[in-house]
Nucleic acid binder design. Structure first.
Length: 479
RNA sequence: GGGUCGCUAGCUCAAUUGGCAGAGCAACGGACUCUUAAUCCGUAGGUUCAGGGUUCGAUUCCCUGGCGACCCA
Protein backbone atom coordinates (compact mmCIF):
# COMPACT_ATOMS: atom_id res chain seq x y z
CA UNK A 1 0.00 0.00 0.00
CA UNK A 2 1.59 3.30 -1.07
CA UNK A 3 1.58 6.30 1.22
CA UNK A 4 -1.56 8.37 0.79
CA UNK A 5 -0.04 11.68 1.65
CA UNK A 6 -2.35 14.06 -0.18
CA UNK A 7 -5.73 14.23 1.49
CA UNK A 8 -7.62 17.10 -0.10
CA UNK A 9 -10.07 18.81 2.18
CA UNK A 10 -12.74 18.64 -0.50
CA UNK A 11 -13.36 17.14 -3.89
CA UNK A 12 -14.94 19.83 -6.12
CA UNK A 13 -18.47 19.13 -7.32
CA UNK A 14 -18.00 20.31 -10.88
CA UNK A 15 -15.62 21.96 -13.27
CA UNK A 16 -16.76 24.21 -16.08
CA UNK A 17 -15.01 23.09 -19.25
CA UNK A 18 -14.98 25.34 -22.30
CA UNK A 19 -13.73 22.72 -24.75
CA UNK A 20 -12.01 19.36 -25.08
CA UNK A 21 -8.64 18.21 -26.37
CA UNK A 22 -9.63 17.15 -29.87
CA UNK A 23 -11.44 20.46 -30.44
CA UNK A 24 -8.35 22.32 -29.29
CA UNK A 25 -6.18 20.39 -31.68
CA UNK A 26 -8.57 20.99 -34.54
CA UNK A 27 -8.75 24.73 -33.90
CA UNK A 28 -5.16 25.50 -32.97
CA UNK A 29 -3.13 22.72 -34.54
CA UNK A 30 -1.73 25.10 -37.15
CA UNK A 31 -0.39 27.65 -34.65
CA UNK A 32 3.22 28.56 -35.35
CA UNK A 33 5.97 27.35 -33.07
CA UNK A 34 6.34 29.67 -30.12
CA UNK A 35 3.08 31.48 -30.95
CA UNK A 36 0.40 32.33 -28.41
CA UNK A 37 -3.24 32.23 -29.48
CA UNK A 38 -4.52 34.84 -27.05
CA UNK A 39 -7.42 32.48 -26.30
CA UNK A 40 -8.18 31.19 -22.82
CA UNK A 41 -9.68 27.74 -22.36
CA UNK A 42 -10.64 25.42 -19.55
CA UNK A 43 -10.16 21.67 -20.00
CA UNK A 44 -10.20 18.72 -17.66
CA UNK A 45 -8.80 15.24 -17.60
CA UNK A 46 -6.25 12.94 -16.07
CA UNK A 47 -2.54 13.68 -15.77
CA UNK A 48 -0.71 11.15 -17.93
CA UNK A 49 2.91 12.25 -17.50
CA UNK A 50 4.79 15.01 -15.69
CA UNK A 51 8.11 16.62 -16.58
CA UNK A 52 9.47 19.08 -14.04
CA UNK A 53 12.08 21.54 -15.19
CA UNK A 54 12.68 23.80 -12.21
CA UNK A 55 10.73 27.01 -12.59
CA UNK A 56 8.84 25.62 -15.56
CA UNK A 57 7.13 22.27 -15.76
CA UNK A 58 5.16 20.21 -18.22
CA UNK A 59 2.44 17.63 -17.94
CA UNK A 60 0.29 15.74 -20.41
CA UNK A 61 -3.44 15.87 -19.79
CA UNK A 62 -5.65 13.16 -21.21
CA UNK A 63 -9.39 13.43 -21.71
CA UNK A 64 -11.73 11.14 -23.63
CA UNK A 65 -10.81 12.86 -26.90
CA UNK A 66 -7.04 12.93 -26.70
CA UNK A 67 -3.93 14.16 -24.99
CA UNK A 68 -2.42 17.63 -24.77
CA UNK A 69 0.51 19.24 -23.00
CA UNK A 70 0.12 21.57 -20.04
CA UNK A 71 2.85 24.20 -19.70
CA UNK A 72 3.42 25.73 -16.27
CA UNK A 73 5.66 28.70 -15.64
CA UNK A 74 6.42 30.12 -12.23
CA UNK A 75 6.21 33.59 -13.78
CA UNK A 76 2.56 32.95 -14.71
CA UNK A 77 1.42 30.93 -11.72
CA UNK A 78 3.32 32.52 -8.86
CA UNK A 79 5.00 30.54 -6.11
CA UNK A 80 1.81 29.13 -4.72
CA UNK A 81 0.28 28.15 -8.06
CA UNK A 82 3.53 26.57 -9.16
CA UNK A 83 3.73 24.58 -5.96
CA UNK A 84 0.17 23.37 -6.50
CA UNK A 85 1.00 22.32 -10.05
CA UNK A 86 4.12 20.50 -8.96
CA UNK A 87 2.14 18.68 -6.32
CA UNK A 88 0.09 17.03 -9.08
CA UNK A 89 1.03 13.49 -9.92
CA UNK A 90 0.41 11.01 -12.67
CA UNK A 91 -3.16 9.80 -12.47
CA UNK A 92 -4.64 12.87 -10.77
CA UNK A 93 -7.80 14.27 -12.35
CA UNK A 94 -7.50 18.01 -12.78
CA UNK A 95 -9.10 21.05 -14.33
CA UNK A 96 -6.68 23.26 -16.25
CA UNK A 97 -7.23 26.87 -17.28
CA UNK A 98 -4.93 28.90 -19.46
CA UNK A 99 -3.98 30.18 -22.84
CA UNK A 100 -3.57 27.97 -25.90
CA UNK A 101 -0.06 28.27 -27.31
CA UNK A 102 2.59 26.30 -29.06
CA UNK A 103 6.01 25.79 -27.47
CA UNK A 104 9.27 26.57 -29.21
CA UNK A 105 9.59 22.88 -29.86
CA UNK A 106 6.23 22.95 -31.63
CA UNK A 107 4.08 21.16 -29.02
CA UNK A 108 0.53 22.50 -28.80
CA UNK A 109 0.01 23.36 -25.13
CA UNK A 110 -2.13 25.13 -22.61
CA UNK A 111 -0.04 27.74 -20.79
CA UNK A 112 -1.52 27.50 -17.34
CA UNK A 113 -3.08 30.26 -15.33
CA UNK A 114 -4.60 27.88 -12.81
CA UNK A 115 -4.99 24.19 -12.06
CA UNK A 116 -7.62 22.60 -9.86
CA UNK A 117 -7.26 19.15 -8.36
CA UNK A 118 -10.66 17.54 -8.96
CA UNK A 119 -9.86 14.05 -7.71
CA UNK A 120 -6.49 12.68 -6.69
CA UNK A 121 -5.13 9.30 -7.73
CA UNK A 122 -4.10 7.71 -4.46
CA UNK A 123 -2.39 4.70 -5.93
CA UNK A 124 0.55 4.49 -8.30
CA UNK A 125 -0.57 4.20 -11.91
CA UNK A 126 0.70 1.39 -14.13
CA UNK A 127 3.94 1.90 -15.99
CA UNK A 128 3.36 4.56 -18.66
CA UNK A 129 5.55 2.84 -21.20
CA UNK A 130 4.70 -0.81 -20.74
CA UNK A 131 1.11 -0.41 -19.63
CA UNK A 132 -0.56 -3.55 -18.37
CA UNK A 133 0.11 -6.83 -20.11
CA UNK A 134 -1.15 -9.28 -17.52
CA UNK A 135 -4.53 -10.29 -18.94
CA UNK A 136 -5.90 -11.15 -15.54
CA UNK A 137 -5.25 -7.59 -14.33
CA UNK A 138 -6.70 -6.23 -17.57
CA UNK A 139 -9.96 -8.13 -17.00
CA UNK A 140 -10.26 -7.58 -13.27
CA UNK A 141 -9.30 -3.90 -13.37
CA UNK A 142 -10.69 -2.96 -16.75
CA UNK A 143 -10.55 0.73 -15.80
CA UNK A 144 -6.76 0.49 -15.83
CA UNK A 145 -6.86 -1.34 -19.15
CA UNK A 146 -9.00 1.46 -20.58
CA UNK A 147 -6.59 4.09 -19.28
CA UNK A 148 -3.50 2.38 -20.60
CA UNK A 149 -4.56 0.49 -23.69
CA UNK A 150 -6.16 2.16 -26.74
CA UNK A 151 -7.38 -1.23 -27.99
CA UNK A 152 -9.57 -1.55 -24.92
CA UNK A 153 -11.23 1.77 -25.71
CA UNK A 154 -11.61 0.70 -29.32
CA UNK A 155 -13.47 -2.37 -28.10
CA UNK A 156 -15.96 -0.29 -26.16
CA UNK A 157 -16.56 2.01 -29.08
CA UNK A 158 -16.88 -0.88 -31.51
CA UNK A 159 -19.60 -2.47 -29.42
CA UNK A 160 -21.47 0.81 -29.29
CA UNK A 161 -21.18 1.04 -33.08
CA UNK A 162 -22.47 -2.49 -33.55
CA UNK A 163 -25.44 -1.85 -31.29
CA UNK A 164 -26.39 1.40 -32.95
CA UNK A 165 -25.94 -0.10 -36.41
CA UNK A 166 -28.24 -2.97 -35.51
CA UNK A 167 -30.84 -0.60 -34.12
CA UNK A 168 -30.88 1.77 -37.06
CA UNK A 169 -30.78 -1.10 -39.56
CA UNK A 170 -33.84 -2.75 -38.04
CA UNK A 171 -35.67 0.44 -37.12
CA UNK A 172 -35.32 1.61 -40.72
CA UNK A 173 -37.02 -1.60 -41.83
CA UNK A 174 -39.98 -1.15 -39.54
CA UNK A 175 -38.91 -3.34 -36.64
CA UNK A 176 -39.80 -2.40 -33.07
CA UNK A 177 -37.31 -2.86 -30.27
CA UNK A 178 -38.95 -4.62 -27.34
CA UNK A 179 -38.01 -5.77 -23.86
CA UNK A 180 -39.07 -9.17 -22.57
CA UNK A 181 -38.40 -10.78 -19.20
CA UNK A 182 -35.00 -11.91 -18.00
CA UNK A 183 -36.64 -13.88 -15.23
CA UNK A 184 -38.38 -16.91 -16.71
CA UNK A 185 -40.52 -19.44 -14.87
CA UNK A 186 -39.34 -21.96 -17.49
CA UNK A 187 -35.98 -21.58 -19.18
CA UNK A 188 -36.93 -21.95 -22.83
CA UNK A 189 -35.92 -20.82 -26.27
CA UNK A 190 -32.53 -22.45 -26.47
CA UNK A 191 -30.91 -25.78 -25.85
CA UNK A 192 -28.86 -24.74 -22.81
CA UNK A 193 -28.59 -25.09 -19.05
CA UNK A 194 -29.99 -22.13 -17.10
CA UNK A 195 -29.03 -20.25 -13.96
CA UNK A 196 -31.58 -20.65 -11.19
CA UNK A 197 -32.62 -17.96 -8.77
CA UNK A 198 -35.41 -17.58 -6.26
CA UNK A 199 -38.15 -15.04 -5.73
CA UNK A 200 -38.69 -14.72 -1.99
CA UNK A 201 -42.18 -13.29 -1.67
CA UNK A 202 -43.60 -15.39 -4.49
CA UNK A 203 -41.60 -18.29 -3.07
CA UNK A 204 -40.78 -19.64 -6.49
CA UNK A 205 -37.69 -20.49 -8.46
CA UNK A 206 -37.02 -18.45 -11.55
CA UNK A 207 -34.48 -18.91 -14.31
CA UNK A 208 -32.31 -16.31 -15.97
CA UNK A 209 -33.27 -16.43 -19.61
CA UNK A 210 -31.18 -18.53 -21.97
CA UNK A 211 -32.90 -16.79 -24.91
CA UNK A 212 -35.84 -14.42 -25.41
CA UNK A 213 -37.25 -16.50 -28.27
CA UNK A 214 -40.49 -17.78 -26.79
CA UNK A 215 -41.54 -14.33 -25.56
CA UNK A 216 -40.77 -12.68 -28.87
CA UNK A 217 -42.90 -15.29 -30.61
CA UNK A 218 -45.75 -14.46 -28.24
CA UNK A 219 -45.53 -10.93 -29.66
CA UNK A 220 -46.02 -12.32 -33.19
CA UNK A 221 -49.10 -14.10 -31.88
CA UNK A 222 -50.19 -10.77 -30.42
CA UNK A 223 -50.16 -9.20 -33.86
CA UNK A 224 -46.77 -7.50 -33.86
CA UNK A 225 -45.10 -8.25 -37.17
CA UNK A 226 -41.51 -7.11 -36.79
CA UNK A 227 -39.83 -7.17 -33.39
CA UNK A 228 -36.33 -7.45 -32.05
CA UNK A 229 -34.55 -7.49 -28.74
CA UNK A 230 -30.90 -6.74 -28.14
CA UNK A 231 -30.64 -8.98 -25.15
CA UNK A 232 -28.32 -10.21 -22.47
CA UNK A 233 -28.84 -13.93 -21.95
CA UNK A 234 -27.31 -16.38 -19.54
CA UNK A 235 -26.14 -19.96 -19.96
CA UNK A 236 -24.83 -22.00 -17.09
CA UNK A 237 -22.14 -23.81 -19.01
CA UNK A 238 -18.40 -23.89 -19.45
CA UNK A 239 -16.34 -20.73 -19.76
CA UNK A 240 -13.96 -20.58 -22.69
CA UNK A 241 -12.42 -18.25 -25.24
CA UNK A 242 -15.79 -18.29 -27.03
CA UNK A 243 -18.21 -18.61 -24.14
CA UNK A 244 -19.02 -16.21 -21.34
CA UNK A 245 -21.88 -17.16 -18.97
CA UNK A 246 -23.64 -13.92 -19.81
CA UNK A 247 -23.51 -12.74 -23.38
CA UNK A 248 -25.25 -10.35 -25.69
CA UNK A 249 -27.20 -11.20 -28.79
CA UNK A 250 -29.82 -9.86 -31.08
CA UNK A 251 -33.01 -11.77 -31.73
CA UNK A 252 -35.42 -10.58 -34.39
CA UNK A 253 -38.67 -11.95 -35.84
CA UNK A 254 -40.60 -11.02 -38.93
CA UNK A 255 -44.08 -12.29 -39.73
CA UNK A 256 -45.11 -13.73 -43.11
CA UNK A 257 -41.58 -14.54 -44.32
CA UNK A 258 -39.51 -17.71 -44.24
CA UNK A 259 -35.86 -18.39 -43.56
CA UNK A 260 -34.81 -17.58 -47.13
CA UNK A 261 -36.05 -14.02 -46.64
CA UNK A 262 -34.39 -13.87 -43.23
CA UNK A 263 -31.08 -15.12 -44.60
CA UNK A 264 -31.10 -12.21 -47.02
CA UNK A 265 -31.87 -9.83 -44.14
CA UNK A 266 -29.03 -11.23 -42.02
CA UNK A 267 -26.64 -11.02 -44.95
CA UNK A 268 -27.42 -7.31 -45.32
CA UNK A 269 -27.14 -6.72 -41.59
CA UNK A 270 -23.74 -8.39 -41.33
CA UNK A 271 -22.52 -6.19 -44.19
CA UNK A 272 -23.92 -3.08 -42.51
CA UNK A 273 -22.13 -3.94 -39.27
CA UNK A 274 -18.81 -4.61 -41.01
CA UNK A 275 -19.13 -1.40 -42.98
CA UNK A 276 -19.82 0.61 -39.83
CA UNK A 277 -16.97 -0.96 -37.92
CA UNK A 278 -14.28 -1.38 -40.55
CA UNK A 279 -15.36 1.12 -43.17
CA UNK A 280 -15.39 -1.66 -45.76
CA UNK A 281 -16.28 -5.26 -46.47
CA UNK A 282 -12.82 -6.77 -46.69
CA UNK A 283 -12.01 -8.81 -43.63
CA UNK A 284 -8.72 -10.33 -42.54
CA UNK A 285 -9.24 -13.63 -40.75
CA UNK A 286 -5.84 -14.83 -39.53
CA UNK A 287 -4.27 -13.86 -42.83
CA UNK A 288 -7.15 -15.01 -45.03
CA UNK A 289 -8.89 -12.16 -46.83
CA UNK A 290 -12.64 -12.55 -46.77
CA UNK A 291 -14.80 -10.38 -48.97
CA UNK A 292 -18.21 -9.89 -47.42
CA UNK A 293 -19.40 -8.17 -50.61
CA UNK A 294 -19.56 -11.59 -52.30
CA UNK A 295 -22.87 -13.43 -51.89
CA UNK A 296 -22.68 -15.61 -48.78
CA UNK A 297 -22.29 -19.29 -49.62
CA UNK A 298 -25.02 -21.80 -48.93
CA UNK A 299 -24.49 -25.47 -48.29
CA UNK A 300 -26.22 -28.30 -46.49
CA UNK A 301 -24.78 -29.83 -43.36
CA UNK A 302 -23.93 -32.93 -45.42
CA UNK A 303 -22.07 -30.86 -47.99
CA UNK A 304 -20.15 -29.06 -45.27
CA UNK A 305 -19.14 -32.34 -43.64
CA UNK A 306 -18.17 -33.86 -46.98
CA UNK A 307 -16.11 -30.80 -47.93
CA UNK A 308 -14.05 -30.99 -44.76
CA UNK A 309 -13.82 -34.74 -44.13
CA UNK A 310 -14.52 -36.31 -47.51
CA UNK A 311 -17.31 -38.39 -46.01
CA UNK A 312 -20.76 -38.22 -47.58
CA UNK A 313 -23.15 -39.10 -44.76
CA UNK A 314 -26.38 -38.69 -46.71
CA UNK A 315 -26.84 -42.40 -47.29
CA UNK A 316 -26.06 -43.23 -43.68
CA UNK A 317 -28.53 -40.59 -42.53
CA UNK A 318 -31.31 -41.81 -44.83
CA UNK A 319 -30.84 -45.41 -43.76
CA UNK A 320 -31.06 -44.32 -40.08
CA UNK A 321 -28.10 -46.65 -39.52
CA UNK A 322 -27.06 -45.84 -35.97
CA UNK A 323 -23.92 -47.94 -36.04
CA UNK A 324 -22.64 -46.42 -39.27
CA UNK A 325 -23.28 -42.91 -37.99
CA UNK A 326 -21.61 -43.68 -34.68
CA UNK A 327 -18.51 -44.98 -36.43
CA UNK A 328 -18.42 -41.85 -38.59
CA UNK A 329 -18.60 -39.87 -35.37
CA UNK A 330 -15.73 -41.81 -33.82
CA UNK A 331 -13.70 -41.24 -36.98
CA UNK A 332 -14.29 -37.52 -36.45
CA UNK A 333 -13.18 -37.82 -32.84
CA UNK A 334 -16.69 -37.31 -31.47
CA UNK A 335 -17.89 -39.33 -28.52
CA UNK A 336 -21.36 -40.86 -28.86
CA UNK A 337 -23.54 -41.59 -25.86
CA UNK A 338 -25.98 -44.48 -26.04
CA UNK A 339 -29.12 -42.38 -25.80
CA UNK A 340 -27.99 -39.63 -28.14
CA UNK A 341 -30.50 -38.97 -30.91
CA UNK A 342 -29.09 -39.43 -34.41
CA UNK A 343 -29.57 -35.76 -35.19
CA UNK A 344 -27.41 -34.78 -32.26
CA UNK A 345 -24.68 -37.14 -33.42
CA UNK A 346 -24.80 -35.63 -36.89
CA UNK A 347 -24.71 -32.12 -35.47
CA UNK A 348 -21.71 -33.04 -33.32
CA UNK A 349 -19.90 -34.40 -36.37
CA UNK A 350 -20.59 -31.15 -38.17
CA UNK A 351 -19.26 -29.09 -35.29
CA UNK A 352 -16.17 -31.22 -34.93
CA UNK A 353 -15.21 -31.45 -38.58
CA UNK A 354 -16.74 -28.72 -40.67
CA UNK A 355 -17.68 -25.67 -38.65
CA UNK A 356 -14.20 -24.38 -37.88
CA UNK A 357 -13.19 -24.74 -41.54
CA UNK A 358 -15.91 -22.43 -42.80
CA UNK A 359 -13.97 -19.20 -42.88
CA UNK A 360 -15.93 -17.38 -45.56
CA UNK A 361 -19.49 -16.47 -44.63
CA UNK A 362 -21.56 -19.60 -45.16
CA UNK A 363 -25.16 -20.45 -44.44
CA UNK A 364 -25.29 -24.06 -43.33
CA UNK A 365 -28.84 -24.79 -44.38
CA UNK A 366 -30.87 -27.45 -42.59
CA UNK A 367 -30.39 -28.80 -39.05
CA UNK A 368 -31.63 -32.11 -37.69
CA UNK A 369 -34.94 -31.96 -35.85
CA UNK A 370 -33.41 -33.48 -32.73
CA UNK A 371 -31.30 -30.39 -32.08
CA UNK A 372 -33.66 -27.81 -33.49
CA UNK A 373 -36.95 -28.09 -31.64
CA UNK A 374 -38.28 -24.63 -32.51
CA UNK A 375 -37.93 -24.56 -36.31
CA UNK A 376 -40.36 -25.75 -38.97
CA UNK A 377 -39.87 -29.08 -40.72
CA UNK A 378 -37.63 -28.81 -43.75
CA UNK A 379 -39.60 -28.69 -46.98
CA UNK A 380 -37.55 -31.44 -48.63
CA UNK A 381 -35.05 -33.12 -46.29
CA UNK A 382 -36.58 -35.76 -44.03
CA UNK A 383 -35.74 -35.36 -40.37
CA UNK A 384 -34.43 -31.85 -40.87
CA UNK A 385 -35.75 -28.40 -40.08
CA UNK A 386 -35.56 -25.07 -41.80
CA UNK A 387 -32.81 -23.98 -39.47
CA UNK A 388 -29.72 -22.33 -40.92
CA UNK A 389 -26.59 -21.30 -39.10
CA UNK A 390 -24.49 -18.51 -40.51
CA UNK A 391 -20.85 -19.44 -39.92
CA UNK A 392 -18.06 -16.89 -40.32
CA UNK A 393 -14.40 -17.38 -39.47
CA UNK A 394 -15.25 -20.88 -38.28
CA UNK A 395 -17.64 -19.55 -35.66
CA UNK A 396 -21.41 -19.88 -35.63
CA UNK A 397 -22.73 -16.34 -35.40
CA UNK A 398 -26.39 -16.47 -36.43
CA UNK A 399 -29.07 -19.17 -36.26
CA UNK A 400 -31.96 -18.49 -38.63
CA UNK A 401 -35.30 -20.33 -38.67
CA UNK A 402 -38.53 -20.67 -40.48
CA UNK A 403 -40.29 -20.51 -37.14
CA UNK A 404 -42.35 -23.50 -36.08
CA UNK A 405 -45.95 -22.32 -35.68
CA UNK A 406 -47.86 -25.61 -35.56
CA UNK A 407 -48.84 -26.19 -31.91
CA UNK A 408 -49.27 -29.95 -32.34
CA UNK A 409 -45.85 -30.30 -33.94
CA UNK A 410 -44.36 -28.03 -31.28
CA UNK A 411 -45.87 -30.26 -28.61
CA UNK A 412 -44.33 -33.31 -30.29
CA UNK A 413 -40.94 -31.57 -30.36
CA UNK A 414 -41.19 -30.77 -26.66
CA UNK A 415 -42.01 -34.41 -26.00
CA UNK A 416 -38.97 -35.50 -27.98
CA UNK A 417 -36.84 -33.07 -25.94
CA UNK A 418 -38.32 -34.49 -22.73
CA UNK A 419 -37.12 -37.93 -23.82
CA UNK A 420 -33.63 -36.53 -24.36
CA UNK A 421 -33.72 -34.95 -20.95
CA UNK A 422 -34.89 -38.21 -19.39
CA UNK A 423 -31.91 -39.94 -20.94
CA UNK A 424 -29.54 -37.46 -19.38
CA UNK A 425 -29.33 -34.44 -21.67
CA UNK A 426 -29.56 -31.55 -19.21
CA UNK A 427 -29.57 -29.04 -22.05
CA UNK A 428 -32.79 -30.35 -23.60
CA UNK A 429 -35.73 -27.97 -23.76
CA UNK A 430 -38.35 -28.08 -21.05
CA UNK A 431 -41.94 -28.16 -22.34
CA UNK A 432 -43.60 -24.78 -21.99
CA UNK A 433 -47.36 -25.30 -21.80
CA UNK A 434 -48.04 -21.60 -21.59
CA UNK A 435 -46.21 -21.13 -24.87
CA UNK A 436 -48.13 -24.01 -26.44
CA UNK A 437 -51.38 -22.37 -25.38
CA UNK A 438 -50.25 -19.12 -26.98
CA UNK A 439 -49.30 -20.95 -30.19
CA UNK A 440 -52.72 -22.54 -30.35
CA UNK A 441 -54.24 -19.10 -30.88
CA UNK A 442 -52.32 -19.01 -34.15
CA UNK A 443 -48.89 -17.62 -34.96
CA UNK A 444 -48.28 -16.31 -38.47
CA UNK A 445 -45.55 -17.93 -40.50
CA UNK A 446 -42.37 -16.09 -39.64
CA UNK A 447 -38.65 -15.93 -40.13
CA UNK A 448 -36.44 -15.25 -37.15
CA UNK A 449 -32.79 -15.06 -36.31
CA UNK A 450 -30.29 -14.58 -33.55
CA UNK A 451 -26.97 -12.80 -33.92
CA UNK A 452 -24.25 -13.14 -31.33
CA UNK A 453 -22.89 -9.64 -30.96
CA UNK A 454 -19.94 -10.69 -28.81
CA UNK A 455 -18.86 -13.17 -31.45
CA UNK A 456 -19.26 -10.83 -34.38
CA UNK A 457 -17.20 -8.27 -32.48
CA UNK A 458 -14.49 -10.87 -31.89
CA UNK A 459 -14.37 -11.72 -35.56
CA UNK A 460 -14.41 -8.16 -36.88
CA UNK A 461 -11.84 -6.92 -34.37
CA UNK A 462 -9.68 -10.04 -34.61
CA UNK A 463 -9.98 -10.65 -30.86
CA UNK A 464 -8.61 -14.03 -29.78
CA UNK A 465 -11.02 -14.34 -26.87
CA UNK A 466 -14.57 -13.30 -26.07
CA UNK A 467 -13.18 -11.74 -22.90
CA UNK A 468 -11.52 -9.11 -25.03
CA UNK A 469 -14.87 -7.79 -26.21
CA UNK A 470 -16.74 -8.04 -22.90
CA UNK A 471 -15.87 -5.24 -20.50
CA UNK A 472 -16.10 -7.28 -17.33
CA UNK A 473 -15.93 -10.97 -18.22
CA UNK A 474 -16.95 -13.53 -15.65
CA UNK A 475 -13.96 -14.61 -13.54
CA UNK A 476 -13.55 -16.37 -10.26
CA UNK A 477 -12.84 -13.93 -7.45
CA UNK A 478 -9.16 -13.22 -7.25
CA UNK A 479 -7.01 -13.79 -4.19
C1' G B 1 -12.91 -33.03 -16.97
C1' G B 2 -7.39 -33.87 -18.84
C1' G B 3 -2.59 -31.72 -20.17
C1' U B 4 1.04 -27.68 -20.53
C1' C B 5 2.61 -22.95 -18.89
C1' G B 6 2.47 -18.65 -15.68
C1' C B 7 2.03 -15.99 -10.72
C1' U B 8 8.58 -11.86 -7.58
C1' A B 9 7.54 -3.98 -5.33
C1' G B 10 1.63 -0.23 -7.84
C1' C B 11 3.33 -1.57 -13.29
C1' U B 12 7.14 -4.00 -16.73
C1' C B 13 10.70 -7.49 -15.63
C1' A B 14 15.67 -9.69 -13.39
C1' A B 15 17.82 -12.92 -9.68
C1' U B 16 24.08 -17.75 -12.37
C1' U B 17 24.32 -24.77 -9.81
C1' G B 18 19.82 -24.11 -4.07
C1' G B 19 23.72 -19.15 -1.27
C1' C B 20 22.56 -11.39 1.26
C1' A B 21 15.42 -10.55 -3.16
C1' G B 22 17.20 -6.41 -7.51
C1' A B 23 16.54 -2.76 -11.85
C1' G B 24 13.55 0.71 -14.76
C1' C B 25 9.06 3.39 -14.48
C1' A B 26 5.48 5.14 -10.77
C1' A B 27 5.42 7.20 -5.43
C1' C B 28 8.00 10.45 -1.77
C1' G B 29 12.18 14.45 -0.80
C1' G B 30 15.74 17.65 -3.39
C1' A B 31 18.26 20.30 -8.02
C1' C B 32 17.01 22.31 -12.73
C1' U B 33 12.95 28.53 -16.79
C1' C B 34 10.92 24.80 -23.48
C1' U B 35 10.39 19.46 -21.67
C1' U B 36 7.83 15.44 -24.17
C1' A B 37 9.75 7.55 -22.14
C1' A B 38 13.12 14.84 -19.69
C1' U B 39 17.74 14.54 -16.82
C1' C B 40 20.52 14.33 -12.11
C1' C B 41 20.90 13.23 -6.53
C1' G B 42 18.39 10.85 -2.54
C1' U B 43 14.29 8.03 0.29
C1' A B 44 10.83 4.47 0.89
C1' G B 45 8.43 0.32 -1.03
C1' G B 46 8.38 -7.43 -0.52
C1' U B 47 3.77 -13.00 3.33
C1' U B 48 8.51 -13.98 -3.99
C1' C B 49 0.01 -16.50 -4.92
C1' A B 50 -1.07 -19.73 -0.20
C1' G B 51 0.17 -24.00 2.80
C1' G B 52 3.35 -28.09 3.61
C1' G B 53 8.01 -30.96 2.58
C1' U B 54 13.47 -31.71 1.45
C1' U B 55 17.86 -28.80 2.99
C1' C B 56 22.68 -25.68 7.14
C1' G B 57 20.03 -22.52 3.64
C1' A B 58 14.24 -22.44 -1.09
C1' U B 59 11.93 -17.13 -5.62
C1' U B 60 14.72 -21.61 -7.28
C1' C B 61 13.67 -28.64 -5.96
C1' C B 62 9.09 -31.82 -4.40
C1' C B 63 3.70 -32.16 -2.82
C1' U B 64 -1.25 -29.99 -2.12
C1' G B 65 -4.35 -25.95 -3.01
C1' G B 66 -5.79 -20.91 -5.35
C1' C B 67 -6.18 -17.71 -9.64
C1' G B 68 -5.17 -17.06 -14.77
C1' A B 69 -3.59 -18.30 -19.96
C1' C B 70 -3.23 -21.85 -23.89
C1' C B 71 -4.32 -26.70 -25.95
C1' C B 72 -7.36 -31.14 -25.86
C1' A B 73 -12.14 -33.58 -24.77
Amino acid sequence: MPAMTREPTSYPYRFERTTDVSSLRARFGSLEEGAESGESVAIAGRIATVRGQGKVAFADLKDATGRIQLFARQDDLGDEGMAEFKALGVGDIVGAEGEVMKTRRGELSVKLKRTTLLAPCLRPMPDQWHGITNVEVRYRQRYLDLLMNPDAVRMVEARAQVNSTIRSFLNDRGFSEVETPLLHPIAGGAVARPFVTHHNSLDMDLYLRVAPELYLKRLLIGGMEKVYELNRSFRNEGVSARHNPEFTMLEAYEAYVDYDDTMALVESLVRAIAEALLGGLQLDIDGTVVDLAQPFKRMSMFEAIEASSGHDLRGVWESRDRNALASAARAAGVGVEDGSPLGKVLGDIFEATAEKRLIEPTFVVGFPKDISPLAKDHRSIEGFTEHTDLVLAGIEIAPIYSELNDPAEQRARFEQQARSRASGDLEALVADDDFLEALSYGMPPAGGFGLGTDRILMILLGAPSIREVILFPTLKPGV
